[in-house]
Design a protein around this nucleic acid. Structure first.
Length: 277
DNA sequence: GCGAATGTTCGCTT
DNA sequence: CAAGCGAACATTCG
């Protein structure tokens, strides 16, 4: 369930439950989720490692080891991370189990198996996750109107620009619709048709919408576990995503659905007029 | 049974 | 060569 706000929520839940713990053993039940190194080497290398902290970059999570090794993962569409008692029943689609020194287990569950794990040894260059190619974080001062305008010098729709992880890290299909609604820009508008004012609103709304969503998604470790690391996205605060056919919360116009850059989009034709020709 | 679902990558075309 | 589009990945749900 993961765009930046959701991945950040997972990070906040995981960090205090993982930091300081030592990994006793690792069992990979579904080899295809391990992208690097080979699953057997991956299992072996993680054993007896102590976790120092958990960080996020874009939609990636990074679990840093005291040794200098680092575990990177991406939840893709349906990945879920849970820490629970070693005795808890093992859910269907559990693909990785790591036993921790405090008696709990870190478990990875992923119905569609799109998620991936990478383990890098201390000093090993990461040229395979894509983290190195990520654009600035939405809250980074480098994310200015001028920067966005410069990256928008191609013929693509503005929604595709927001989806490009090398332009800005962490935005997906839900929050691109939400950001465009907040900025009053139709998703299919081509970048070349945006005014300087449009770029300025976009640059302002990107951090605003994502920070607000992250705050809305705040959840206790107990509720996170009760929702199986799945039902924590606070959907009632969404204003357009998944709401086509419903009235716009601002003006009452019926929200429309369309396909942009191969993804479904929802927008308000009145609040987000199409400026293209 | 069909279509769509929060993401990314690959291959083909323009 | 760069950009962009559709398909593919695998499963569930409405």
């Amino acid at each position: 369930m993961p765009e930046l706000p959701e991945v950040e929520t997972v990070r906040r839940i995981m960090e205090p439950q993982l930091a300081g713990r030592t990994i006793l053993s690792v069992r990979v039940c579904q080899p295809q989720i391990i992208a690097h190194p080979a699953p057997e080497a991956f299992e072996r290398a993680l054993c007896r490692q102590t976790i120092s902290d958990v960080s996020r970059r874009g939609k990636f999570l990074r679990i840093q080891m005291e040794s200098g090794d680092r575990l990177c993962l991406h939840l893709r569409m349906t990945g879920q991370l849970l820490v629970e008692s070693a005795g808890a029943p093992i859910e269907k689609h559990t693909h990785l189990i790591a036993a921790l020194s405090d008696g709990n287990e870190l478990r990875y569950i992923d119905v569609r198996r799109f998620g991936r794990f990478w383990l890098f040894a201390k000093g090993e260059a990461d040229d395979r996750t894509g983290i190195a190619k990520l654009g600035p974080e939405p809250t980074d001062a480098a994310l200015t109107a001028d920067y966005l305008k410069m990256r928008g010098q191609t013929g693509r729709p503005v929604k595709a620009l927001l989806h490009d992880q090398t332009v800005v890290a962490g935005i997906g299909n839900i929050y691109s619709d939400e950001i465009l609604f907040a900025a009053g820009i139709c998703p299919k508008t081509l970048c070349r048709d945006l005014s300087d004012q449009d770029w300025a609103r976009l640059a302002a709304k990107i951090p605003e919408v994502l920070l607000w969503a992250t705050a809305q998604n705040e959840i206790s470790p107990e509720d996170y576990l009760a929702g199986r690391g799945r039902e924590y996205r606070n959907t009632p605060h969404l204003r357009v995503y998944g709401l086509s056919g419903q009235p716009c919360a601002v003006c009452g116009t019926v929200l429309q659905k369309l396909t942009v850059a191969g993804r479904s989009s929802c927008y308000c034709p009145n609040c987000q007029p199409d400026k293209g020709r």
